[in-house]
Design a protein around this nucleic acid. Structure first.
Length: 865
RNA sequence: GGGCGCUUAGCUCAGCGGUAGAGCGCUGCCCUUACAAGGCAGAUGUCGUUGGUUCGAACCCAACAGUGCCCA
């Protein structure tokens, strides 16, 4: 074994072996209890970013532990068909050939997109292999594959028949570049520099001033609205005013939704181009006048015809100014503007006929599942966010004016018939007979919302569905809670309602993690150039180091800052595990059961006791998705306790040979075996490589998860080793202060009390002390609670350094005594504090007093300077 | 504008009523035959501010000040 672990040499071959051996394949016929995770399907066009890497790492660590615990663990991979993004990608490709999708026609375009998917669509799934993801590749799914498409048609038909899907003309979010409707969730609001222009409509006493950020829409105004209680406008309510340029007279209406404190308190109303105005229009029976086409180009005759919306705005303002109608202008006026989440184009509210899901009843069920505790949001602090969203959900626009996606299964007949066709039904008629299918497709989330059960074969009652649904836990970032989690909740509860309240939930727990940030806690962004490529880390430091870095930072629901230095530290840890195991192997560590208790040394009993405690701790933390804490506990146990102390303590018995060596080899092997298994979910590759060598076993992937063995708890051994550590550290501290070489052996005379008397050999070994020879003359005396150590440095020592040290310790002890005395002298404290606390303070006082008197003795014994 | 967080060591974060912790970074010494991707030792904080509750507050309450997110 080389002294440095080389991840690149083992990871690829181990992964291929794991997959080939079928370790990750779940068996629906198994008697074992199921543990199921469906991967939040990444967009088929995407490539792996650090956020995916975090998500994958956490799901894999959960799944690997469950597999080791004896669950039938299924982690199901796949991608979603990403309607807009994929269509954009293929259209971009076509554009290079000078073609548009319309040149190909719908059928050819969809065929071409499938070809694109076959060629490019597995990029991200290939990348997660590099992270060691233990997904079941035999069950990989795609939201647009045949089976899942059947699920989509099934649920559409059911919702339609239940009256939960309907068609209506409303204002929707429209992307004039993608040329499709978007749901509310696909619109991102951020502040833009705009303008606020106040325009005077009408003349003289009848004039009224409205303020707007979108002057160009005035062409479509069909009213002016004021608040019904606004005294300024009482005389105008019910009258009409002339709209500039058009000659149209529009009514002044009173509507309680108008904010009298905004601008002049009077607003222009453009029902066809603004969601709020649309509602005002509905209430007052106003005309919906469309003045723009689907690309945002003005369609009303006159000087503005053919202008893009952003050209029309200044043109309209200029023309109004010419007529003296501009009363005030504020520029820049910063306000929130909706943008297409796919292409960042400013969204245009557009009056349009679309398909909708009536979410109120579905959302109520989704909320109830969490309120009733059937689905747990973890961490609990994020529950309010879930409720805030799910309790205020508006109807969901599901139709998209795209070609790539599940086509809406509704047919329109020659006599105005509207027929929704189920998954196994034929079209109600032919095109020749005058029937045509709705040309729109469904929102991608309509299909990914079915993911927890469509992937298991629903609507068929498959073995997989019976075995693996409801799934166990959904692992995702809190930013996805709204979009996706809520949709899966709504659809799962609806589609599976036959199974009752407990059986219909899509998952028992939603485990939310935070977003990955850079080492200063800043958001990762292209403009800052602080992006992190997880595959670069994998290449430089290994998949294990990358995973451990992410898992170790993953406190539930909070963002994690990370950077390359973190990953280096993780790489160092993996290397440390490698070298500690290497040492054990070189010294004949064996894994063949523990020796009888009477053959165990104190050190053996100590490390076995600690192993038991840490096993229980890590197990509980992982069960509660507290990955950061679990990793931290493992890191400290492995490095500080096993590698630093136990391995050092093991060196003398190993060197001594005989029974002591034999028993130490067994304990060392046992502890390493368990430690590797505990670490395996987080750092699968290095632990597999080492474990196979150490144990000769086939694979750690399916090895048993360690159980805490209460019989190994040994508080006495823990106390003994603590006293030993204290004495060793005190001698080392002295040696360091005195500038002694680490390797230099020094004659020492020991006077040990209590349990420490049995550990002189270990103390001498770890502190590098030889037996006092003839002519031993102590030049320094060190004391801890159970040890007095006299050292012969054969010459003068640095008295000043030692005095400084002791003086500092003396001050600390004195401060401690003062604080304890203050408490114990306080009658209220004695009367009201619980007894264990009082006792603790008394112990602390006694310890500090003993320390102080020892320090004083040592100070007095120092030679005078 | 409404709501939810956060503010603890140089940086990033744990701790959430009874002596301030970790990682990285920092300082000194050391290539001691598992490991320099290492070892040993060490330094570092009026726990945002001001009040209050309590025998006792980083932790509970109130106000304020920063700061971030979500929704309008």
């Amino acid at each position: 074994m080389p002294p440095q672990y080389a991840p690149a040499e083992v990871e690829g071959k181990l992964y291929e072996h794991w997959v080939g051996a079928g370790y990750f394949e779940a068996d629906a016929k198994s008697e074992k209890p199921a543990h199921t995770i469906v991967i939040p399907p990444p967009n088929v066009t995407s490539v792996l970013h650090i956020g995916h890497a975090l998500d994958v790492t956490l799901q894999d660590s959960i799944t690997r532990r469950k597999r080791m615990q004896g669950f039938e663990a299924l982690w199901l991979p796949g991608t979603d068909h990403a309607g807009i993004a994929t269509q954009n990608a293929v259209e971009k490709q076509l554009a290079k050939e000078g073609l548009s999708r319309h040149d190909l026609g719908r059928e050819a375009f969809v065929k071409r997109t499938w070809e694109w998917k076959e060629e490019k669509g597995s990029a991200i799934l290939n990348q997660i292999r590099k992270l060691g993801a233990s997904v079941d590749w035999t069950r990989e799914r795609f939201t647009f594959d045949a089976g899942l498409s059947r699920s989509v048609l099934t649920i559409f038909k059911r919702l339609y028949d239940d009256g939960l899907i309907y068609r209506a003309e409303r204002i929707i979010n429209w992307c004039p570049r993608c040329l499709t409707a978007l749901s509310d969730a696909e619109v991102e609001h951020h502040d833009d520099d705009g303008e606020l222009v106040s325009i005077r409509y009408g003349e003289g006493d009848d004039a009224i001033v409205v303020a707007t950020t979108r002057a160009e829409t005035m062409l479509g105004d069909t009213a002016v609205a004021v608040h019904p209680d606004d005294e300024r406008y009482q005389h105008l309510i019910g009258t009409t005013v002339e709209l500039p340029f058009t000659g149209r007279r529009i009514p002044i209406v009173a509507d309680a939704h108008v904010d009298p404190s905004f601008g002049t308190g009077a607003v222009k109303v453009t029902p066809a181009h603004d969601p709020n105005d649309f509602e005002i229009g509905q209430r007052h029976g106003l005309e919906n006048l469309v003045v723009m086409d689907e690309r945002g180009v003005i369609t009303v005759h006159g000087p503005f015809l053919g202008l893009d919306r952003f050209e029309a705005r200044p043109a309209v303002v200029a023309a109004l100014r010419e007529e003296g109608r501009i009363v005030a202008e504020k520029r820049p006026y910063v306000h929130a503007v909706g943008h297409c989440s796919r292409c960042d184009t400013v969204v245009e509210p557009r009056l349009s006929m679309q398909w909708w899901v009536k979410v109120a009843p579905l959302a109520a069920d989704a909320a109830a599942a969490v309120r009733e505790g059937r689905v747990r949001i973890h961490p609990k602090e994020l529950e309010p966010r879930y409720f805030q969203w799910v309790d205020n959900l508006r109807d969901w626009c599901i139709s998209r004016q795209l070609w790539w996606g599940h086509r809406i299964p509704v047919w329109y007949g020659p006599n105005g018939e509207i027929v929704c066709v189920g998954p196994d039904e034929d079209a109600p008629g032919t095109e020749a007979e005058g029937w045509r299918q709705d040309s729109d497709v469904l929102d991608t989330w309509f299909s990914s919302g079915l993911w927890p059960f469509s992937t298991l074969g629903w609507p068929d009652e498959t073995e997989d569905l019976r075995k693996f649904y409801p799934t166990s836990v959904l692992v995702t970032g809190y930013d996805i809670l709204f979009f996706w989690v809520v949709r899966m909740m709504m659809f799962g509860l609806y589609a599976m309602k036959d199974r009752g309240p407990e059986g219909s939930i899509p998952f028992h727990t939603v485990s939310l993690h935070g977003l990955v940030r850079d080492q200063f806690g800043r958001k990762l962004s292209k403009s800052l150039g602080n992006g992190i490529d997880p595959l670069e880390w994998v290449e430089k430091y290994g998949a294990d180091a990358t995973r451990f870095t992410l898992a170790r930072g993953a406190n539930p629901g909070v963002d994690l800052a990370t950077g390359e230095e973190w990953c280096q530290a993780s790489r160092n840890f993996c290397n440390k595990v490698w070298n500690a195991t290497r040492f054990a192997l070189m010294n004949g560590a064996t894994v063949a059961g523990l020796p009888a208790k009477e053959h165990l040394s104190t050190a053996d009993r100590w490390i076995l006791s600690r192993l038991t405690a840490v096993t229980a701790e890590v197990d509980a933390l992982m069960e509660d998705y507290q990955h950061a804490k679990a990793c931290d506990a493992l890191y400290h146990f492995a490095w500080d306790e096993v590698f630093d102390w136990y391995v050092e303590l093991a060196k003398s018995p190993l060197a001594a040979g005989g029974r002591a060596a034999e028993s130490t080899r067994a304990v060392l092997g046992h502890v390493l075996d368990a430690t590797l298994r505990l670490l395996h979910p987080y750092i699968p590759f290095v632990t597999e490589e080492l474990w196979k060598t150490l144990t000769g076993g086939e694979t750690i992937v399916t090895a048993a998860w360690p159980q805490a063995d209460g019989a190994l708890r040994d508080p006495a051994a823990e106390a003994d080793i603590l006293a030993l550590q204290e004495a060793v550290t005190e001698v080392r501290r002295f040696r360091s202060d005195q500038g002694l070489n680490v390797g230099q052996r020094v004659p020492g005379r020991l006077s040990l009390q209590g349990s420490l008397q049995a550990h002189e050999v270990e103390l001498r070994s770890l502190a590098r002390l030889t037996e006092p020879a003839e002519g031993f003359a102590a030049t320094a005396t060190l004391q801890t609670a159970l040890a007095t150590v006299e050292l012969d440095l054969s010459g003068t020592i640095d008295v000043a350094a030692e005095r400084a040290r002791l003086t500092k310790d003396q001050a600390a002890a004195a401060k401690e005594i003062a604080a304890a005395n203050a408490k114990l002298g306080n009658e209220a404290f004695l009367a009201k504090a619980p007894e264990p606390v009082v006792e603790k303070i008394r112990t602390r006082l006694a310890t500090a007093e003993a320390d102080l008197s020892r320090i004083r003795q040592q100070l007095a014994a120092l030679p005078q300077a």
